[in-house]
Design a protein around this nucleic acid. Structure first.
Length: 910
RNA sequence: GGACCUUUAGCUCAGUUGGUUAGAGCGUUUCCUUGACAUGGAAAAGGUCACUGGUUCGAGUCCAGUAAGGUCCACCA
């Protein structure tokens, strides 16, 4: 067995074991009918992505789940991959082209796509390499990409199927248009931002009554040339006589437009009169439609004004146009007033510019399985953690709008629709769309392609990633599904993702799963996953979201270099409570590293303490236990080990990862290292107790490594091997993690009858030691190891002390602890095992001593008063449960005994 | 406007169905390089649990309200 070195070198160990795992295909997800399946599909990062702290948290949690599943004996699969991320990727490649002063249109569609593929092969998927550094145990042989041929087939199959079922249609509607990317966006890709702008009060002159005006307030004067009416509320007395009259449009080509009544107008807002610009506002479009008014589009696709806006505005960008429009209005006297105004403006999430409501032809999807998707979560087939996200999910589904699935991009799945040559696309109605002589929809395309023209648009990226849980497992190809183990692994177990994509992705995957998998079978077979764990969002210390633009996110790879992958994993999990956002603090990552160091050194101590005996299996270690030689510490550490095992079990059941980590941390550091290892030091010097003590250490270390392995896989694998717990050619993950009752049963068979009072006994010993150390510290003797203690105590207590005397003397840093009948004039402390005196050769400062004891007495008196008050409350005595009552009585008795002893000590001081 | 979350030690957070004197890590003070670990050990200081009411024998915990901060959805030009 190799020696455990003085310090843990994460870099080499991580490299070594990751290569070993991959070489042995330890992460392969293989269906095994003798085992329970456990599957996770990764939320596919953008192929352009690089690892962020969010990814670190998210993927660490997935790795923890899948590694734990392996230890529990499941056939586990973690399926990785990337998303083609339409806009993001196309933008990256276009940016590169721009450096060569080219646009994608210069290249043409085919050449441009070649460039994107080139880019993807060279630079895409860096993030998957980075995940390996983190220790992610994905089945890399199965890596998926949403533009892979078989995945694309799944996407197009779904399109054709939904088209055939009538869920997909083409329509000219108001969409969110991004003038930078020059494509339509779904509602989910638009984020509202408060913007400080200007609102303009503009007057429109009545045609029949020159000199009389109707005033409106608008934030967008540049769209006035697109006005087709002024609307007022039908019951608004201010405008009663004016409805039906005409006003002159104050900007753009001269026109007379009517005043129309419409109940959608808010009388309270502005002047109560609203300019109607159907081409540039959703509400206006609806009002225009009701009154059969035309829509005049004054903008081009790139957001510049066109000739319909008039000669002065044409060619200007919309923001420059706004200024110019205000100037023109001012010059003509139509601008009555302008004031600062804060309103909410929709921004393109990707390009970060205001979106333009724009009337265009797009493909739309009426979502399938909406009701069933609600039921899946409402009725508990799918569980959300934390549960409250279920409400957000249901609210979205209640108010669901059709999904605009077409994008005016090139990078993506081109919509499998062909139009008969010579047809006017714009004029196609619903009937034409379903007429196969006019419109062809299929994966293969028409047999006579020369007579058809394919749709230019591609599908929204999310219209491919919503199929992720089953398209990654071969769907819809039977042979591929067979090979991937679809029947075995679907539905997957748990999805780990951020709540920010609950609509984009989670809800849509549920609907897709319900619609496309296992038609006719019950809902629990068709859902894509059984649990969804929503992580928190990682924020910086000021509480801001971590983002590239703010530059407030540390590079995870730097953190790995600095603290090790295990340190990073342990740290990030320990600060990520369920369902709450996380304020990132690097010192928590550092403490993750420190924990690894502690684990390393405790193992080192174990190795240095003596040769093992059979360490290679649980039963081997159990056989080395000598139950007859157990003392209270042996009982207590095993009891705490089982309790921790149970607690970690519970945490996995509830997805409480940080609680699991904290429990393991406390157990290992405090119970094992600070106490058991310390008491071991005297037990190991005694040949009588040495072997049993080593066996107990092995039992605890072995179980701790197993429990910790999902969280910190590298160091646990290394120690597992160095301590000889494994067998050659096997990994720690090949072992089976026994639960608390299995271990208890197995120990029982070996004659170990765990003493449940031992924990309480050890607590008393700990209190005793603590008081002894405090006495020394109070008298500036903490560094001295030649001090003597005396104890005055009863027979029973002394027997406990005597049985542990060697350990206690060492732990207290004393040369001797002995019993006396009476001690006078020495500093003293009242412990649960008797009164402890520090043997001070020098004279005691009676004043200081009195102050110290008086302070303690004073506090104790307060506690006694409150306990007495409770016990003298008749209502408490009659209504509290007996256990609580008895506890209070015992507490009072203890407090009073201690009180009496303190008083006696004070009297003795004189 | 609607929904949700948060408020506990200087900082970041635990606190599981209401029950002894409210915990951890970091930070702070003092002491310690003793053969696993100074990435460490020991001792200590530090909290009227945001506020106001209510329920209860008993409230950090349950209920109502208030305040502050945050998130999501909808959105009036």
């Amino acid at each position: 067995m190799a020696e455990i070195t003085k310090s843990y070198e994460s870099r080499e160990v991580e490299k070594k074991w990751y290569a070993a795992w991959q070489g042995a295909r330890a992460f392969a997800g293989r269906p095994d009918t003798g085992k329970e399946p456990y599957a996770i599909v990764i939320p596919p990062p953008n192929v352009t992505g690089i690892l962020t702290m969010g990814h670190v948290l998210n993927n660490t949690l997935q790795d923890i789940l899948v590694r734990r599943a392996r230890l529990e004996g499941h056939a586990a699969l973690w399926l990785p991959g990337t998303d083609h991320a339409g806009i993001a990727t196309q933008t990256v490649v276009e940016r590169e082209l721009r450096k060569q002063k080219k646009t994608r249109r210069d290249l043409g569609r085919e050449k441009f796509l070649e460039k994107v593929w080139e880019w993807r092969h060279e630079k895409g998927g860096i993030i998957l390499e980075q995940l390996r550094r983190l220790g992610a145990s994905c089945d890399w042989d199965r890596t998926q990409f949403t533009m892979d041929p078989h995945y694309s087939r799944a996407v197009l199959t779904v399109f054709a199927d939904l088209f055939r079922k009538g869920h997909i249609y083409r329509g000219k509607r108001m969409v969110n248009w991004c003038p930078v990317s020059q494509t339509a966006l779904s509602d989910e890709e638009v984020i509202m931002k408060p913007v400080n702008g200007t609102i303009y009060r503009v007057r429109y002159e009545l045609v029949e009554q020159p000199g009389r005006y109707v005033e409106v307030k608008t934030t967008r004067p540049e769209t006035i040339p697109g006005d087709v009416a002024i609307a007022v509320h039908p019951d608004d007395p201010r405008y009663l006589g004016l409805i039906g009259k005409k006003v002159r449009r104050p900007l753009g080509p001269p026109a007379e437009i009517p005043l129309i009544p419409d109940a959608a107008v808010d009388r309270e807002f502005g002047t109560g009169a609203l300019k109607i610009t159907p081409a540039h506002d959703k509400a206006d479009f609806e009002i225009g439609g009701r009154h059969k008014l035309p829509a005049i589009d004054v903008l081009k696709a790139d957001g510049t004004l066109n000739e319909l806006a008039g000669a002065e505005l044409a060619g200007l960008d919309r923001f420059a146009g706004r200024k110019k429009a205000a100037e023109l209005l001012r010059a003509s006297g139509a601008l009555v007033a302008e004031e600062a105004y804060a309103n909410n403006v929709g921004y393109s999430e990707r390009a970060d510019v205001p979106i333009e409501p724009r009337l265009t032809w797009q493909w739309w999807l009426r979502y399938p399985r909406v009701e069933e998707a609600k039921s899946a979560v409402r009725d508990g087939y799918i569980r959300f953690y934390p549960q409250r996200w279920g409400k957000v999910y249901l609210h979205w589904l209640e108010n669901i709008q059709d999904w605009c699935i077409s994008r005016q991009l090139w990078w993506g799945h081109r919509i499998p629709v062909w139009y008969r040559k010579g047809l006017d696309k714009e004029a196609l109605n619903e009937t034409d769309l379903r007429d196969p002589t006019k419109v062809h929809v299929s994966l293969e395309g028409p047999l006579d392609p020369e007579n058809w023209i394919q749709e230019d648009d591609v599908l929204d990226t999310w219209a491919s990633s919503w199929l992720w849980p089953f398209a990654t497992m071969g769907w819809p190809d039977e042979a591929a599904m067979q090979k991937a183990g679809y029947d075995y692994f679907y539905p997957t177990s748990t999805l780990v993702t951020g709540p920010d994509i609950i609509f984009f992705w989670v809800a849509r995957m549920i609907m897709a799963g319900l619609e496309f998998t296992r038609t006719g079978e019950p809902i629990e077979r068709r859902i894509p996953f059984r649990n969804v764990y929503f992580t928190g969002i990682i924020r910086d210390q000021q509480g801001r979201k971590m983002s590239k633009s703010l530059g407030n996110s540390p590079d995870p790879l730097d953190l790995i270099d600095k603290y090790g992958a295990d340190g990073l994993r342990f740290g990030i999990v320990s600060i990520a409570p369920q369902g709450q956002d996380i304020r990132f603090q690097e010192d928590r990552i550092e403490s993750g590293k420190n924990f690894c160091n502690k684990l390393w050194n405790a193992s080192r101590f174990r190795q240095m303490s003596g040769e093992a005996g059979d360490n290679s299996s649980l039963s081997g270690i159990l056989a080395r236990l000598e139950p007859g030689k157990f003392d209270a510490d042996d009982h207590a550490i095993l009891d705490r080990m089982l309790a921790t095992t149970r607690e970690v079990d519970r945490c996995f059941g509830e997805f409480e990862f940080s609680a699991a980590v904290q429990s393991l941390y406390g157990f290992f550091w405090n119970d094992f290292c600070d106490w058991y290892v310390e008491v071991s030091k005297s037990k190991l010097q005694n040949p009588e107790t040495k072997a049993n003590c080593l066996a107990i250490q092995d039992l605890v270390l072995r179980q701790t490594l197993l429990l910790l392995h999902p969280f910190i896989p590298f160091i646990t694998e290394e120690l597992w091997s160095l301590l000889g717990y494994g067998t050659p050619g096997k990994f720690i993950a090949d072992a089976l993690l026994e639960n608390a009752s299995q271990i208890a049963t197995a120990s029982h068979v070996r004659g170990v009858a765990l003493d449940r009072d031992a924990v309480a006994a050890v607590e008393k010993l700990k209190a005793f030691i603590s008081q002894a150390r405090a006495l020394k510290a109070d008298h500036n003797l903490a560094s001295r190891r030649d001090v003597r203690f005396f104890v005055t105590t009863g027979e029973v207590e002394w027997r406990v002390l005597a049985a542990n005397l060697a350990k206690l003397t060492r732990m207290a840093g004393a040369v001797e602890i002995s019993r006396r009948d009476k001690v006078e004039g020495a500093p003293a402390a009242v412990t649960p095992l008797g009164t402890l005196y520090l043997d001070l050769a020098s004279t005691v400062d009676a004043g200081a001593e009195r102050a110290r004891l008086s302070k303690e007495l004073e506090q104790l008196t307060k506690h006694i008063a409150s306990t007495e008050a409770r016990l003298s409350n008749e209502a408490f005595v009659s209504k509290a449960p007996p256990a609580v009552l008895e506890g209070a009585r015992k507490q009072l008795a203890d407090q009073k005994a201690k009180h009496a002893e303190l008083e006696r000590l004070l009297r003795a001081l004189g």
